[in-house]
Write a protein that binds this DNA or RNA. Sequence first.
DNA 1: CTCGGACTTTGGTCATACCAAATTGATAAA
DNA 2: TTTATCAATTTGGTATGACCAAAGTCCGAG
Lengths: 243, 243
Amino acid sequence: MIDEQKEPKPESNPSERAASSVVRAIEKDIQLDVLHDGEMLPSERDMMERFSVSRTVIREATHILSSRGLVESRPRFRPTVKKPNFDTAMGALEGIVHHLLNEAGGVKNLFDTRIFMEVGLVRSATENATKDDLQALKAALDVNEAAIFEIDKFYETDMAFHRVFYTISKNPIAEAIHKAYMTWLGPRWKMMPRSADRNQFNFESHKAIFQAILMRDPDLAEAALRFHMKDAWAQIPKSISEN
Amino acid sequence: MIDEQKEPKPESNPSERAASSVVRAIEKDIQLDVLHDGEMLPSERDMMERFSVSRTVIREATHILSSRGLVESRPRFRPTVKKPNFDTAMGALEGIVHHLLNEAGGVKNLFDTRIFMEVGLVRSATENATKDDLQALKAALDVNEAAIFEIDKFYETDMAFHRVFYTISKNPIAEAIHKAYMTWLGPRWKMMPRSADRNQFNFESHKAIFQAILMRDPDLAEAALRFHMKDAWAQIPKSISEN
DNA sequence: CTCGGACTTTGGTCATACCAAATTGATAAA
DNA sequence: TTTATCAATTTGGTATGACCAAAGTCCGAG
């Protein structure tokens, strides 16, 4: 149980919102693990007493914490504490990116950064992948092949194959970025026509990349990936890719 | 002037916050340019009448819009409309990233992605840079050299040199990422010891990268950059880099 | 036309109230 | 004892209305 005592009232600085001192206090509690991950925040009425502010301010504070990803709040439910990670960081971008993708060239720009990113990952993998990494890649490739005739499942295995490149980097930021790309770019491909033929072709592309990595030939791997990505972009209906 | 008529009251869906319909309406106004960039939002009291909701809800709505970067609001001032761009998107990450950097390995992970990113940019520049790009790079390098003995200024010209790699990509997302890196990683270097010697050394590193690009040798350019970055990382006091 | 200053508007905060959904606790059924 | 059930209570979402201080407006003196 949390020690229930009132916070010292901070100097009322006119240029600062009252909510922000509350936000800081709760941030601190989270960082110091006074509020553990997954735990619920105290009720609004409790907090208003503890911080000696109105419920209005408490609510504003939780909104801010929520937008920063430190707490997760569903309507009508008590907000729960959430230790931040790079995934939630990407989640914070959600709103803005959604708008950006509706602007001219937005999708293309984002897709270009994905190509850019994966080229780097693939080159890196080509040069540094361990036995285990290669095995994971092979496994993903096999699963991908097995799903060629399962229209729905192929899409998943396709993503999973690409994801391996991100996981090989062992950098949690990279993995978060992959998830973000899938979230933001994915819907654009969801609606494109699928067929076993296309799946077969995509699988071959994946295989080519994999083999280039096996051969430890970064330039070849890069070329194979670029070809694959360029082809993927061509699949997007113009009506979507241009807007 | 905006046509002053009440919005049709949306079906009161219990599972949705009242604020979100207001948010949608304003988002739409912004996207359709009914509210132009830089313009001020109507007063809260006006909006509460227009949407037939309480001021509480209007305030919540503006907070949400603010956290999405669609409006910019300073305390005591009317929020102003702001067409979103990738810069503001990075700004939205501010809060979370701040926390993440305080976690173990956070700084290192972020720095690694920067290395990763720049390696890609430099390779790309090596292969695709136009005459103008090379000239811009040369100009930045010269400015950097000229500032070797101006302790404070060198830091700026250093950043500016690296920034050129991002601008060469012609992708606004890349440029936003550069700014983000400088914002988040910059402070860690700000406090490190400076000297003309170190500046000289860093300049030589920059020069090496530049020359590799001139020679159109991507592998050499990558090696030069990696050496430079590795050295830079070594400059960070252990006490900071490890936390 | 510029500079102040009085007056009005508006954002920040508080207090209070009501409703409906979520939570809790007691109770009945298995 | 365990589980299913339902009423009582708590709590989040929203609405009102009020007050203050800062920002914005307007007008008259210089």
